[in-house]
């Protein structure tokens, strides 16, 4: 077995064993879905559009699965950089960056899968049938999982900014808020005015979150392809940033020792 596969599996096993963490997360997800369901139920009764409540709650579930499954990799990486821990790993035959990213993926996968299972049951009970066909579910689930991997990658990039910043908490929080607003992680962007959507389209949050989660209520191969292509573009761009930052970071460690 490959070293990264082993890291992924051990991290997966560790996350699975943290039952209290998982229970807390599921409790939070339940509260969130319950409250928003009541909110949208109220709005739906005043709306002419049928099933608005059902659409938005399923949308919210997948959005939260992506957002909540992020294992705070930005803070872990930042601490590694600031404490100098990274320096002591760079003389091992493994990429420190990929090591941390793989561990984070293992962690995220557990949260994503557990929230997926629990969330689908709760949402089914609260709202009834989903707004997508059953055969579309594995595709939407997989696409959202990929989006979650990209989400972790984005926070990895935030963590690497520890090279220049004394604290990344503010940056991490800003990114999170932007994901909520520009990525439509709470409300679908379709409810916002057009000028706002036009701005959001120029940011990676639009494709990382909105375009992917939109498949929940507007599934089509065209939308799927659009999400795929735009996400690929932003991932490549982010990849460049990560590679350059990581190289700069290792160079600094080579000169100053971490």
């Amino acid at each position: 077995m490959n070293k990264y596969t082993s890291l992924f599996l051990i991290s997966f096993k560790q996350a699975w064993n943290k039952k209290a963490n998982l229970s807390g997360m599921l409790f939070f997800l339940f509260i969130l879905i319950f409250i928003y369901n009541r909110l949208w139920e109220t709005i739906s009764t005043e709306s002419t559009e049928e099933g608005l409540n059902r659409v938005f709650i399923w949308y919210l579930l997948f959005a939260e699965m992506i957002i909540l499954s992020n294992p705070k990799i930005d803070r872990i990486l930042f601490d590694d950089i600031q404490s100098g821990t990274m320096a002591y790993y760079i003389n091992k035959p493994i990429s420190f960056f990929l090591m941390r990213y793989t561990e984070a993926l293992g962690n995220m996968s557990v949260s994503f899968a557990v929230m997926g299972g629990f969330g689908v049951v709760i949402t089914l009970l609260l709202t009834g049938n989903p707004p997508f066909e059953i055969w579309q579910f594995p595709i939407i689930f997989t696409i959202c999982f990929i989006s979650s991997c990209i989400n972790v990658l984005m926070y990895t990039a935030v963590g690497l900014c520890g090279l220049w910043l004394a604290s990344i908490r503010t940056l991490g929080m800003a990114i999170e808020r932007l994901a909520f607003i520009l990525g439509g992680a709470i409300f679908p962007l379709s409810i916002y005015p057009d000028w706002f959507i036009d701005i959001a389209k120029w940011t990676p949050f639009y494709s990382f979150y909105y375009l992917t989660i939109k498949l929940v209520y507007d599934f089509s191969w065209t939308n799927l392809m659009e999400a795929f292509l735009l996400n690929t573009f932003w991932v490549v761009l982010m990849g460049f940033f990560i590679v350059l930052t990581y190289k700069k970071l290792t160079k600094r460690i080579n000169v100053y020792g971490g």
């Binding site: 077995m1 490959n2 070293k3 082993s6 890291l7 051990i10 560790q14 091992k92 035959p93 493994i94």
Partner: peptide
């Protein structure tokens, strides 16, 4: 830090192929 020692050893074994 959070792994049982034997899991850390197993990972080190993988890291060194």
């Amino acid at each position: 830090y959070n792994l049982p020692v034997q899991d850390s050893f197993a990972l080190m074994g993988k890291i060194y192929d």
